[in-house]
C-alpha cells in the first residue's frame, strides 16, 4: 500500500502540491487525471522518491520515501513520458538488464530474467536491436521491459501514450491492464486524456495542485472534469 499524508511540495517558491492525501492499495489500478501543469508528474515522482516532500510523508509499503530510496525504487517502477529519454544503453537487451545490474543480481539470473520479460512482452525479436533504430512503440516496450524485469509491486506510468499512434496506444493500454489483472501489479496511470482511463478502477482528478476527486471511476461526472479544466 502507498500512503500519502498531508503532502506539500514546492519548486523554489511555487507551491505545486497542496495538501495531498491519497491511499493506493496493492494491485489496484488508479488513474490520475488532470490538465497540463496541475501537478500530476510532480505527484507521481513522489511515489518512487525522485522527489521528496517539502512537508508531509509518502510511505510505500511501510517505507518512508525520505528514509530509504533504494527499496522504494525497487518496489515502484516508473515509466516516463518520453521513451526516448529513458533508455541508457544502445542495445535493447542490455538496457533491460541495466536495473538488475544496479541492484546486484548475478549474471545468469539477469540473463534468465531478461529472456523471460522479452518473451512476456512478445519482443524477443528486439533483443539485439539498436535502440536508435526502433520505433517509438518499440522503445516504450523496451522501457517497460526494463522496469518489469525488476519485478516491482507498483508501476507508475506518466502519460505513456503521448508519443504513440493509435495502434501502439491500444497495445500498451492492453498490456497495462493485463499486468494489473493477471500479474497483480498496482498501476498508477497519469494522464490528461479521458480515453486513457478506460481500464482504471479508481480515478483521482487533480486541479492546481489539489485533489478534487478521488473515488471509483463510476462516480466520476462531467462537472468534476470541467472543474479540472479537462475537455469532456
Amino acid at each position: 500500500m502507498i500512503q500519502i499524508k498531508n503532502l506539500y511540495f514546492k519548486y523554489e517558491d511555487e507551491l505545486v502540491l497542496n495538501n495531498i492525501n491519497l491511499r493506493l492499495n496493492d494491485s489496484s489500478y488508479t488513474a490520475i487525471i488532470g490538465a497540463n501543469g496541475s501537478g500530476k508528474t510532480t505527484l507521481a515522482k513522489h511515489l518512487n522518491a525522485l522527489l521528496l516532500p517539502t512537508k508531509g510523508t509518502v510511505i510505500v509499503d511501510e517505507i518512508d520515501t525520505k528514509k530509504d530510496q533504494f527499496n522504494v525504487r525497487k518496489n515502484v517502477g516508473f515509466i516516463f513520458q518520453s521513451p526516448e529519454d529513458q533508455l541508457v544503453h544502445s542495445i535493447v537487451e542490455e538496457d533491460i538488464a541495466f536495473g538488475l545490474e544496479n541492484i546486484g543480481i548475478e549474471t545468469d539470473a539477469i540473463k534468465n530474467k531478461v529472456r523471460t520479460i522479452l518473451r512476456l512482452l512478445n519482443i524477443e525479436y528486439l533483443a539485439k536491436k539498436n535502440v536508435n533504430m526502433i520505433s517509438a512503440g518499440q522503445k516504450q516496450l523496451t522501457a517497460l521491459a526494463g522496469v518489469l524485469v525488476m519485478e516491482p509491486k507498483y508501476i507508475v506510468f506518466d502519460e505513456p501514450t503521448t508519443t504513440l499512434d493509435n495502434k501502439n496506444k491500444r497495445n500498451i493500454m492492453g498490456i497495462i491492464a493485463k499486468l494489473n489483472k493477471k500479474d497483480k501489479i498496482g498501476i498508477i496511470l497519469v494522464t490528461n486524456l479521458l480515453s486513457d482511463i478506460k481500464y482504471a478502477e479508481n480515478v483521482v482528478v487533480m486541479g492546481e495542485g489539489k485533489i478534487i476527486f478521488n473515488d471509483k471511476k463510476s462516480k466520476l461526472n462531467k462537472s468534476i472534469l470541467k472543474k479540472a479544466g479537462l475537455d469532456v
Binding site: 525522485l50 516508473f78 516516463f80 529513458q86 541495466f98 536495473g99 549474471t107 522496469v147
Partner: peptide, 23 residues
C-alpha cells in the same frame, strides 16, 4: 530536458556507481 529526464530514469532504476554484477 533529455538529460534531466534521463537522470530521473536512471535513478528510478536504482543506478549507482558501485556495482558488483554484470549482464
Amino acid at each position: 530536458k533529455s538529460a534531466s529526464n534521463l537522470s530521473d530514469a536512471m535513478l528510478s532504476r536504482n543506478y549507482t556507481e558501485k556495482r558488483t554484477t554484470y549482464f
